[in-house]
Design a protein around this nucleic acid. Structure first.
Lengths: 340, 340
DNA sequence: ATCTGGCACTCTGTCCGTGCGAGTGCCAGC
DNA sequence: GCTGGCACTCGCACGGACAGAGTGCCAGAT
């Protein structure tokens, strides 16, 4: 089976060369640049087989070969190992993320960092509300009959909603309400907390009944609404660099990135085991991303998954390096978030 | 001076035609499409003068004329009137912005709306902290010796900072501190509030002294730090549509938009009188934007300026329509913010 | 059974020359 | 001061020729 083995070497060499040069790679160049120990003619035979099996293709007769999605898939699964980051890069990660003042700051630094390390578009999902717990609930009176409800999660997310009350509100009641809410909800998972609201309506002291009733609906909505899970996107300028890899236009891709929901779904479907997930080209099952690859991983503190992050780029990308960068950044972000 | 008058009509016609067709416009086409009442030959003479004066230029001999930055400037200043929005558009604005749940939601809807109306890249600045006032200050104990300080402004912005205290913190003291902080700062402009911090150190009750000292520095920093004034960007996909207007690459422009600080400076320098500001091409004084125009205006509630918003696009854009859209959106946003 | 060198073939990208069309500048005449 | 006419200049699209790269296949070597 030294036969099959060599064919895989050829595929690996094709992927590596094509990724670095962006030129279809021919048998002669392959024989020169890699020590495969055989002549171009032999490589040609191997290439013919690889093409028949669907791993490579030629853009037109008499150009070299180019990996197909299937070829990249095999490369990622069996022919490559994550390329460890350099010491300088690791140091850069720490320096970059240190000194962030709040959640938004952490995430926007993360996305810039990831974009810079991989030279691709980076995306980071806000910690999902559904997996967060209540750190604090704040009630602020902004007008006589209007309250501002502020939810702070243990992951640092802040959600706020205005509530109109049917009647004027007493200052002391607001303070009491605040205490009551925090006694009831602090520390609870958001999903569990929503279930406590009906109870609260029953057990609240008489003077707070109307207030609780007024904010109840909004509170539940705030706690369970996972619809607005947000995304931070950065490094779109890198797309211009790789525009050649997207025949036609960058537009569908830029639109998908702005749409958020498409990318969000991809990024949030992370392996719970913490493995880096790669989706290549057509595997993405969304037209705008059919020429792109997505490398993603979950991040979290300890064993708690908070959200996903990753990169979006052309299928012709340096998978080993980018996968390593994505994983490393996710780990550091997890650490940082655990400290805050 | 019917002479000069007609020349300006010619310039206006050139701008309009060029904006809509993206083809250099020649004397013959001009005479056909516009009722200038003179022959192509006469128009040619006018064009020669306009070119000499620097308002138009020809890409190469024997192509039509194209407006220069100076030409667009004259057009914007003297040859055009803001084109009122259609009823449908006005309704779309209301529908789009209604139902926003918090500040971030309002601004991200705004940016999407503006991008959609103008088909350009839209940018919206968060309400500047320096012009905001304290609505509420919240102190949350997240660990025995660690506090979370949350600042909520009257514009709905939320800033949070973690504070490490040198000693363990008593729960009751936290409540007392919260009351003290709000009594002291609520309603004060952020800039003024910072000045009150030293006073607070003097007058705080003995049991709170150390706490106040611990949070003092962070508090001042949070109040005065205008560095992180944030920007929401949307509609970058529209750049792909007008890529032809940016010879070379979209990259510098995308980079500038990500850099934020460059665009932020442009957007935040708004006319206090509420006039729409247009910067054309080289007027931007930043290389990446030298081929782009920025249309911006301040938004605010009542007579209070909160921040700026606007669009970035090629110099070849429909100024009358876009200026009207920017102004209309700014007004609506001001209204919405005034209500919350 | 497998590899290798040689050779004919195919296709693309490029260069060059040509012709066409658009647009101009200028000038004489109204 | 406007107009029609005319010669001139370019850019661009089209088409043919050509070089280069790469392949597939086959006969011979190992």
């Amino acid at each position: 089976m030294a036969h099959d083995e060599r064919r895989l070497q050829v595929l690996r060499a094709i992927v590596q060369d094509y990724v670095s040069t962006n030129d279809p790679v021919g048998s002669k160049a392959l024989a020169e640049r890699h020590d495969l120990g055989v002549s171009p003619a032999t490589i040609r035979n191997d290439m013919a087989v690889l093409e028949e099996q669907g791993y490579i293709t030629q853009p037109h007769t008499s150009a070299g070969r180019v990996p197909t999605d299937k070829g990249y898939r095999l490369f990622v699964d069996r022919l490559s190992a994550l390329k460890p980051l350099s010491v300088a890069e690791k140091r850069a990660i720490e320096r970059f993320l240190d000194g962030a003042v709040d959640l938004h700051d952490i995430l926007s630094r993360t996305v810039r960092l990831l974009a810079q390390l991989t030279h691709q578009v980076a995306v980071v999902q806000y910690p999902t509300l559904s997996r967060s717990a209540v750190r604090h609930l704040e009630v602020v009176q902004v007008a006589t009959a209007r309250l501002l409800l502020v939810l702070i999660t243990d992951t640092g997310r802040v959600e706020q909603r205005l509530v109109d009350c049917p009647v004027d509100v007493d200052r002391d009641d607001v303070a009491e309400l605040r205490t009551l809410l925090n006694q009831t909800f602090a520390g609870a998972k958001l999903a569990d907390a929503a279930a406590l609201v009906p109870d609260l309506l029953e057990t609240a002291p008489p003077n707070l009944r109307r207030l609780v009733a007024a904010i109840g609906a909004v509170l539940v909505e705030t706690l369970v609404e996972p619809g607005d899970d947000r995304l931070v996107v950065g490094g779109t300028a890198n797309l211009a660099r790789v525009a050649v890899d997207f025949p036609g236009s960058l537009r569908p891709l830029l639109e998908a990135l702005e749409e958020q929901v498409v990318v969000l779904r991809l990024i949030s479907e992370v392996d719970t085991g913490g493995a880096v997930l790669v989706r290549i080209g057509e595997e993405n099952a969304h037209e705008a991303l059919s020429g792109a690859s997505v490398v993603s991983v979950g991040y979290g503190s300890g064993d708690r998954a908070l959200g996903g992050l990753g990169i979006v780029g052309p299928t012709r990308m340096d998978y080993p390096t980018n996968m390593a960068a994505v994983r490393a950044v996710a780990r550091y972000v997890g650490q940082i978030l655990a400290e805050s």
